[in-house]
């Protein structure tokens, strides 16, 4: 939550830029994210008549398995919204202090994701060899089979949205592996809310 306050103070410095018709907030017209040496601008779709035409227009999917998620499905893991996520991108992701994870299976990810997100399908953390290799990339050190999460990165994890279980399963498994809850944040809105707000998506 502290990020949010800082965000309002820092991001507003955009004088001289072309005025956007549809801003993210009054003070935040857009947020830049660095991806592989290039800057991608996250902003809202400027056409106020625009409507979604992809799979995210669906209101209902077979349940089971697509039940609605609790607001805070894992106690101790903070649930965040779009503004906190954007702040995370600026303060953590761009400075290599945090990672934005798309927990969906890669078929979904390839259709489009939040700019900067890296795909780690949730099932991968269930297989020890892969899990340990990945954890090391997330800043975890493993010595004599013991995992040390002291320098583990802050993570924001998301999936399709409140009806999807993939992010929750990934978070549960990370917690089982010992990842500190306070270093994990859940963007519950996922791709559904992100796109409903007309925020930029990117095909990896």
């Amino acid at each position: 939550m502290q990020w949010l306050l800082i965000l309002f103070l820092v991001v507003g410095v955009l004088s001289g830029e072309e005025e956007l018709k549809v801003k993210i907030t009054e003070d935040i017209p857009y947020v830049d994210v660095e991806i592989d040496g290039k800057i991608v601008r996250i902003q809202r779709i400027q056409d106020t008549e625009h409507k979604l035409r992809n799979g995210y227009v669906k209101t209902s999917r077979p349940a089971p398995p697509f039940y609605v998620q609790e607001f805070e499905p894992i106690k101790g893991i903070e649930t965040i919204g779009e503004l906190e996520l954007l702040d995370f991108i600026q303060k953590k992701y761009n400075l290599n202090k945090g990672l934005l994870i798309d927990a969906r299976i890669s078929k979904w990810y390839r259709l489009g994701t939040i700019p900067g997100a890296v795909n780690i399908p949730f099932s991968l953390f269930y297989e020890k060899e892969y899990a340990d290799r990945l954890l090391q990339q997330l800043g975890v050190t493993i010595k004599d089979g013991k995992r040390d999460f002291k320098d583990a990165l802050d993570l924001v994890i998301f999936d399709n949205g409140p009806w999807c279980q993939q992010a929750v399963r990934e978070m549960k498994q990370l917690v089982r592996l010992g990842y500190p809850k306070d270093k994990i944040h859940y963007y519950r809105g996922g791709m559904q809310y992100w796109q409903i707000l007309g925020l930029t998506t990117q095909k990896p």
Binding site: V118, P121, Q137
Partner: peptide, 19 residues
């Protein structure tokens, strides 16, 4: 941070790809 982030993401991608 830019260079290291790029490397880290490439490494993660290669693990996921292998998976």
């Amino acid at each position: 941070a830019i260079v290291n982030k790029g490397r880290k993401i490439r490494a993660i991608k290669s693990i996921v790809e292998m998976f």
